[in-house]
Structures are given as structure tokens and as C-alpha cells.
Nucleic acid binder design. Structure first.
Length: 273
DNA sequence: AATGCATGCGCAG
DNA sequence: TGCGCCTGCATTA
């Protein structure tokens, strides 16, 4: 379930569990990372870092493990030895010598041992990340304001903003009443500033709760006097994957359309051009 | 058993 | 614009 909040949380979880230990066990049961895992085995995790959807695990002078979860990569901490676990799909298994902390990475698009320079190259091609202290929203705004591309596509472009995925994209546009097909150059400075600040707040909350929750307190089912809902992807949302269902605010049907090979969701009434 | 779909992305054409 | 890649889960047959 990887948007940026997941990756920042993982960076913190890897650090908490493993950096205190001077020697880790590293293996690649699935095989594709076996040679690098052998190099890392017996060494210490010295740092972790997230930028957008990219995760870096630092092993001092040995370099960094660059991880990108893609659409269905996952990390399981400590749960991987249950009966349902499939050890043959674990790309990177990290564990303390005593086995009291374990992490199993499955299904990543990227899992590679890289140098500092290669890591820098990844940072260089990513836009500002609302979850990073060093993020410069003006850089993102400049790109948005210079583009004829739709704001929906720009928000998903990791060179423009790093870490926003299909859920935050749909939800932040709804929360600001912005038609997803609005060209970037028609987004006002005030609109962008509000969208950026909202992403900072929403994604921080996502890290804290480990899920995406975007519905304002005054719009919860309880506050609206409606029966409770349960979305099948964790948190409460306004439009994501709610095609043809009634909008929580106006009751009209949520629209959906393909945009750059992804499904876009929006309320045609609340999000007017 | 087979198919489809997913919070991603890079590449060919 | 479409395809492939990585995996797991729900739905269909």
C-alpha cells in the first residue's frame, strides 16, 4: 500500500528495529538480491531515509539499499514466519542475530545496492516531498504553473511532487474543489499553497496512523447523521474508488475515468472547473 | 483453475 | 498509449 507516507513510516521502522544492532543477518530467499545480501550480511544498518516513494537503507561504507515498492511491494515486520508466509518470495530478509526483529521485503520494483552518487541521482530526479523538512513547495509550484498538463497528472508526476499517489491525488483535489482536468497553469498561487499545505498535513497524519484518512471531522458519517461506512482500503475517503457511489457532500455520483493508465475519481459537482 | 485488479513506473513505439 | 514487471487477494468459472 505504498504512497509516500508508507515509505517514510518504513524508514522509521527499519531504523528503530535494526540500527541498535552491530551485526545483522541479510539474505534473499527469492534470490534476486542474493549477491548483495551476502555482502551486507554481518554488517550494521547505519541510516535510513525516504524521499517520495523511494526508501534507502544505509550500510555505512557498503552503500545504500535502494528500495521502491512499486504497485504491490510490501514489508512485513516480524509476521513472516506464520503458516501463511511464502518465504520463497522474500527479496530481502533482515534480522537481528537473536531473531527478535525481522523484516521481509516482497515484490518490490527496485531493490538494489547503490553508491552515494547513485542515491544522489535518485534525489536529483525527484521533486519536493511534502514529508521532508527540506522540501521546497515553490519548486513544485513553478513546475505546475508552467504546465499545460492537467493538475491530476502533475500531482502524480514524481518530478513535480514526490510521494503523492493515486489516493492522495484524488482526495486532495476533492478537498479543494479542484476539477482534476484543470491545466497546471490555471492553478492559482493560493490554490497551490493550500494544496501543498494540505498534502503536508494529510501525509503526516498518514504516517502517524499508517493509513490514508482524508474525511474532515464534520463530514464523518456520525457528523452527517448517516450510517457508518467501512472502506476496504483502510481509512475514510471522499472519492477514491467510490465510482458511482453518492458523494458524501452533495450526494451526486462520483465519476471515474482512466488517466495515464490509472483510475481517476472525482465528484463532478463539488469539483467544478 | 483462471482471471482481474491494485495506493507504481519505466520503456518502446 | 500500451506493455511488462513484481505479488497477493478477490472474483469468476
Amino acid at each position: 500500500m505504498p504512497e509516500g507516507h508508507t515509505i517514510h513510516r518504513l524508514a522509521h521502522e527499519y531504523a528503530t528495529r535494526f540500527t541498535p544492532h552491530p551485526r545483522l543477518r541479510a539474505t534473499s530467499p527469492q534470490g534476486a538480491f542474493a549477491a548483495s545480501a551476502a555482502l551486507l550480511d554481518g554488517h550494521r544498518l547505519t541510516a535510513t531515509e525516504a524521499h517520495g516513494k523511494h526508501l534507502f537503507l544505509g550500510f555505512g561504507p557498503l552503500g545504500w539499499v535502494h528500495i521502491h515498492l512499486g504497485l504491490f511491494g510490501k514489508v512485513a515486520f516480524e509476521g513472516a514466519q506464520g503458516p501463511g508466509a511464502k518465504p520463497d518470495t522474500v527479496r530481502l530478509h533482515l534480522a537481528t542475530p537473536a531473531g527478535d526483529a525481522r523484516a521481509d521485503l516482497r515484490g518490490p520494483t527496485v531493490c538494489a545496492l547503490v553508491t552515494d552518487a547513485e542515491k544522489q541521482a535518485v534525489h536529483a530526479r525527484l521533486g519536493p516531498d511534502p514529508l521532508r523538512e527540506d522540501a521546497d513547495p515553490d519548486r513544485a509550484r513553478a513546475r505546475v504553473r508552467a504546465s499545460r498538463t492537467t493538475i491530476a497528472a502533475l500531482l502524480m508526476d514524481q518530478k513535480v511532487v514526490a510521494g503523492v499517489g493515486n489516493v492522495y491525488r484524488a482526495e486532495v483535489l476533492f478537498r479543494h474543489g479542484i476539477d482534476p482536468y484543470t491545466p497546471g497553469r490555471e492553478i492559482t498561487d493560493a490554490q497551490w499553497d493550500a494544496v501543498w499545505q494540505d498534502l503536508v498535513d494529510l501525509m503526516r497524519e498518514g504516517v502517524r496512523l499508517n493509513r490514508i484518512d482524508t474525511v474532515r471531522p464534520e463530514h464523518t458519517p456520525e457528523a452527517m447523521g448517516r450510517p457508518p461506512r467501512k472502506d476496504d482500503h483502510g481509512g475514510e475517503v471522499y472519492v477514491y474508488r467510490r465510482a458511482a457511489l453518492p458523494c458524501h457532500l452533495c450526494g451526486d455520483e462520483i465519476s471515474t475515468a482512466g488517466l495515464a493508465a490509472r483510475n481517476l475519481f472525482w465528484c463532478p459537482t463539488c469539483q467544478k472547473a
